[in-house]
Write a protein that binds this DNA or RNA. Structure first.
Lengths: 170, 170
DNA sequence: CCGGACGTTCAGTCCGTATTGAACTCACGG
DNA sequence: CCGTGAGTTCAATACGGACTGAACGTCCGG
């Protein structure tokens, strides 16, 4: 693996670490992102210089979450992994679930906690509606995206995607 | 602190931990969410049964990130903390930044890595546009929320992509 | 039946980091 | 000037979890 790719995988490892996940998971993910074909556990272990045990557990976990996909080939005893085809919608859905967990916790608190202050009650209600609003918006956007990208081979890139300046943060 | 509230704060601690942040930070946040008034460091330390040192560092960090707000009262040497008034938009903006960091990493990889496969290039482009699209959608929703929360009941489901003027300086 | 090549599991180690008690700084009041 | 009370900083500790090497189970080809 060349040094540029290694830098990229390490960066992904850091991003994953910042999200509370093991760094190796991020590095696996990064490596598979820039891999043409699916990779076996041995390939991953060798490319990332980590034990096969780590690769095994982490890759499986990533597959459980829906970030990776395990693919088996006939007459081949290896397991291969690649980034899930529906990566974007899956991760977005997962993010949505986290927000909903937060919103649930707030809602349950508002309903069950002995809160005397009306101001606090109003505040909690405000959080609930705000986060519900955002979850709603994200759900809508997801649907729009799926509707747009589900069509037969979008020949032109979605114009919306180009509108946000996200580059040159260096 | 009653047991129900304690359960809630612990739950927040777990949620924060799942996000890769110290549990005490989450518990402070949870406790302040259901507090009528701002709380001093001592009050927090006593309510959560943790050292004042932890409360000090964690509360300050939360304030740095914009989740809490430190409020000083005249003729009172205590520091008080409360949840930031703009909590929702702040956390949402932070989340947006994280997505952009990811998108940046992907974009940089696409531009600088020696990728031979055209399929991989296309895949990375796809990620970029997808995540940029979502960031855009979230930005729009945020603006709608901010515009609406000042006025009456912003309850509105956007059926199709509706573009509002971006004022993006904040 | 073997032997080898897989992936998985598990005890052990190592490292980071959350948390703490104590020391420290600083401002104010007397 | 002290002494008190506030927040901060720091060295030490405890804890969790990531990672590993080795053992294990399993399937396949011979």
């Amino acid at each position: 693996m060349d040094t540029a790719t290694s830098r990229f995988t390490d960066r992904m490892g850091l991003l994953f670490e910042a999200e509370g996940q093991p760094p190796i998971a991020g590095r696996i993910f990064g490596y598979l992102m820039v891999s043409e074909e699916a990779r076996s556990l041995d390939q991953l272990a060798e490319a990332l210089r980590v034990s096969k045990a780590s690769v095994s557990t982490n890759a499986r976990r990533l597959a459980d979450v829906g970030i990776l996909e395990r693919v088996c080939r006939p007459a081949d005893r290896h397991d291969y992994y690649r980034v899930a085809p529906e990566l974007f919608t899956r991760t977005m859905a997962e993010r949505l679930r986290r927000w909903q967990r937060f919103t649930e916790a707030v809602g349950e608190a508002r309903r069950t906690l002995p809160i005397r202050s009306e101001r606090v009650r109003a505040r909690l209600r405000g959080y609930e509606t705000a986060y519900a609003f955002m979850a709603d918006a994200i759900g809508d956007a997801l649907e729009r995206w799926q509707a747009g990208s589900a069509g037969p081979r979008p020949r032109r890139r979605a114009a919306e995607g180009q509108r946000l300046a996200h580059g040159d943060g260096r």
